[in-house]
Design a binder for these strands. Structure first.
Lengths: 137, 137
DNA sequence: ATAATGCTAAGACAAGTGTCTCTCAGAGTC
DNA sequence: GACTCTGAGAGACACTTGTCTTAGCATTAT
């Protein structure tokens, strides 16, 4: 059987999020940050989650002084990318455009973001996406 | 503690997808469709997945003739909505605009979709996102 | 040195997921 | 009636996820 793909469950994602935000931290530091954002986990729970993330290669750790200091190996961008890709593949026939449409229809954007989107779209039609280089020109 | 929210795991989602596509079907019929789309599950596996979906209230069934006929209770739109919402909440600070931006930057749209998006955005700025007449929580 | 404290390692444990084997009852066949 | 095919139902079983308890080692305070 094909081994299951590496996933990042919600609990682990929450830990990663504070790691991204703080850059790095010990279990206890992260636990503190998590408590502030409403998680009521015990020390051991956070340690377990970090251990699992570590086994998956998503975080690294170095022993410093007393405790291990953990830092993220995977970036927020990468996780976003993967999640979005998987969503698009599973529910939008692999067409990101469908998702965009869905989002715009069901959630009106605040004006500033609408403006940004407009700009992006216009750039896109001026420099149509051919196989060519980006903007190196 | 707070009960875990009802989720639809990937395997169940695959079954739902053929249900949406066919409208309804018996275990054997769905199994056939799934085989065509590459799933190699056994009869019992599909039956189990339908049973679990049924317990979650996502599909309904009526006995007809010999076998049970299943049909979806939840729509594709609803599932999409929930998945998107959860993605936005978890990785885009609850701001759908960020996701839109991300999508547009990383996946250039085909011209026809770009046009559609443009139209949508323009409509949006003409009929601004009414800040009033909304209910507060 | 002892005790108190913080840290990691090891593992427990229930619920959720992915997948299947077995058994039995009803319908159709000879 | 005995045999066979189909489908339902029960349950198995390993792995994942969410969460925690405990035991043991290293560091620090008394």
């Amino acid at each position: 059987m094909a081994k299951r793909p590496v996933t990042i469950p919600d609990a682990e994602l929450d830990v990663l999020k504070v790691l991204w935000q703080k850059g790095q931290g010990t279990v206890r530091e992260l636990l503190g940050a998590l408590h502030e954002s409403g998680r009521t986990w015990s020390y051991a729970t956070v340690a377990t989650l970090l251990e699992r993330l570590s086994n998956k290669g998503m975080v690294a750790s170095d022993r410093s002084e007393l405790a291990f200091v953990y830092r993220p190996v995977i970036s927020k961008q990468e996780v976003r990318q993967k999640r979005v890709q998987s969503l698009v593949d599973k529910l939008y026939k692999g067409e990101p455009g469908l998702l965009v449409m869905h989002l715009l229809k069901s959630h009106p954007l605040p004006p500033d973001q609408a403006g940004e989107v407009k700009t992006l779209i216009e750039q896109m039609s001026n420099a149509p996406p051919k196989g060519g280089a980006k903007k190196k020109k």
